[in-house]
Design a protein around this nucleic acid. Structure first.
Lengths: 216, 216
DNA sequence: ACAAAAGTGTTTCCTCTACACCCATGT
DNA sequence: ACATGGGTGTAGAGGAAACACTTTTGT
């Protein structure tokens, strides 16, 4: 059981890593991982572990990625590892222990075991779902301006995107709604921005069939 | 470890079920399932089990679905079950043992354990991927006419679709190619149909980003 | 007044759909 | 000849991207 917790930190998509205290791979960075009790479901094991070990309690979205079964994943014994993707909103600041840190996914240290594969898979899943679901809600604060959202989603995707079309796509699909409030401009002026929120804060597929749609 | 093997049989999307010989759920239909040896990878365990128990050796595509961890899945003990989706081309006719049969997914018998959830998940995954990948290759014979393909994909999706647009979408995306050959018309005449094949016989994403594409 | 940031109008492109029409075969 | 099934031409709807232009603020 293993968690890839992603969040945008300082404008970069980052993953939560934990420095191993024991062998194997002592001193190397690894994903938060642990065993599952016979009375626990996988999801409970993940949330309990994150709350206890790294003090992360505000995971806005948690979904299963895959189960890896390579024989020599762990040099000690054969371990089946089920990976989860967790997302933390950018405004949440968990109190991280000293042996835990956020690392930008495009500038990772050497990781223990085969953990970089899990990180790649998690980032791929997030990027794909940004396009056809409302998963952005789990990266963003409850309320935000379009430029804040543009920066968040741009960081997650790994490339810049325009605020104009982002607004139009997300409003046309009713993924985000204006709250009615407006934000105060920054020091350098500029027109005050409309404050938006996500219409739903649970995963919803917003673009279910690209083609081969059912007849109407 | 558990396999949802799907195929189009007699024009209907069907799942391979196996009649349990022992308790629990003796006599009920269940998905092919079994344990995993410590020296086996999950994928190997699935393929070996399918070959040995139900004599299905020609699975054109096999992918992992999810791992279920409900405590009381199995009334005997706590079992983690990793499900796989397998697809068999419509022209392959495995020699099924007497206790094994294809059942249309829209007309299932009562199933053992929570197996109907796995079947639902598998069908959902297949239907979604038909829209944005070339996964149809795993349902179709190596060569086929457009109307054969239309019937296959229509059966998998659960609704009728038009041959015209199917052709255009799949050729525009270079998912299928004409072989150059033409088929003989049936008894009732009609223009001979062009014979097509899938350009690739491995899973490829053909429509990666619906929106929020990277700049060019 | 000017710079900066947000938002709108408009055009263009592209994909998918719909439907009429044409083509090649069997009886 | 005509029924049957396959293929093509063409027009239209809709979503998304690009970009110029307008609005609203701070200094």
């Amino acid at each position: 059981m293993l968690a890839v917790v992603l969040s945008v930190r300082d404008g970069r998509l980052s993953v939560l890593l934990w420095k191993r205290a024991r062998n194997p791979y002592r001193g190397r960075w690894s994903l938060p991982c642990g065993g599952v009790e016979p009375t626990q479901r996988l999801r409970e094991a993940i949330t309990a572990h994150l709350a206890r070990k790294v003090d992360v309690r505000e995971v806005a979205h948690l979904e299963q990625l895959a189960t890896h079964s390579a024989i020599d994943r762990d040099p000690r014994e054969r371990v089946l590892a089920t990976a989860y993707l967790g997302l933390v909103p950018s405004d949440v600041q968990p109190e991280l222990p000293a042996d835990t840190a956020w690392y930008p996914v495009d500038d990772l240290p050497d990781t223990a075991f085969d953990h970089h594969h899990f990180i790649d898979a998690a980032v791929g899943r997030l990027r794909a779902k940004l396009s056809y679901t409302n998963i952005g809600f789990a990266l963003a604060p409850r309320e935000f301006t379009i430029s804040e959202l543009r920066d968040l989603i741009g960081a997650a995707l790994g490339y810049e995107l325009g605020a104009t079309n982002l607004t139009r796509v997300l409003t046309r699909r009713h993924v985000i709604d204006p709250t009615g409030r407006i934000a105060r401009p920054g020091q350098s002026g500029g027109r005050p921005a409309t404050v938006y929120k996500f219409a739903a804060r649970e995963l919803t597929v917003t673009d279910p069939f690209a083609v081969l749609r059912p007849p109407r």
